[in-house]
Design a protein around this nucleic acid. Sequence first.
DNA 1: AAATCCTCCAACCGCCACCGG
DNA 2: GCCGGTGGCGGTTGGAGGATT
Length: 203
Amino acid sequence: MGRAPCCEKLGLKKGPWTDEEDRILIAHIQKHGHPNWRQLPKQAGLLRCGKSCRLRWINYLRPDIKRGNFTKEEEEAIIHLHETLGNRWSAIAARLPGRTDNEIKNVWHTHLKKRVVPKRNQAKTVTQFSESTMSPQPCSSDPSSVLTEEIANHQHHHQGLDVKDEHIVDSFDNFPEIDESFWTDALFENSSNITSAFGGPIS
DNA sequence: AAATCCTCCAACCGCCACCGG
DNA sequence: GCCGGTGGCGGTTGGAGGATT
């Protein structure tokens, strides 16, 4: 079908956002919300395509964004969630309040991937995990059951598992349990606070 | 001090799913 | 059921800044 281009190339600005553009976008969303991203830049007087505005808002300007370095706990969470969910960054981000899929994706590619690949190779020798943050004993705390539920849901949602999904499940089976209590506690404790921040979605 | 290489991350691109007419 | 518009997602890129030579 004759798909409309994501944005008209003519006259629309690309590249890094200026402070002024940020201010305009924030002010407009605070005042009107974002019922329609395509119309938003026109209404706000921004020379950007709607997609660009949405991305800027979601990844950078949202008030509930948690900026700054990822904590060790968050990194472990990402690694673990990636084992279960694969490259479903938005799903992973949903479990890390205040973090965006883009940010998580970046962290994964720049830091965590390097850490995980060697670990996977080491996984053949079980003893290697005994002294790291990885713990062989299963965690029975409630928060982790949420994660287990997520996995179950994921598998259920993909009854017709493709090769990729099978690989995910497989790799999870082969991956030693993380002692989640140390990060899930903090994470879920946090999420209750964040929930209120999410409570009033602008649109 | 200059040149080169490397890392990181904001932003773009293309595709897909969903929804309403 | 089809079509077009829109939102959302994941992969990729480009450039800035830091590290190294």
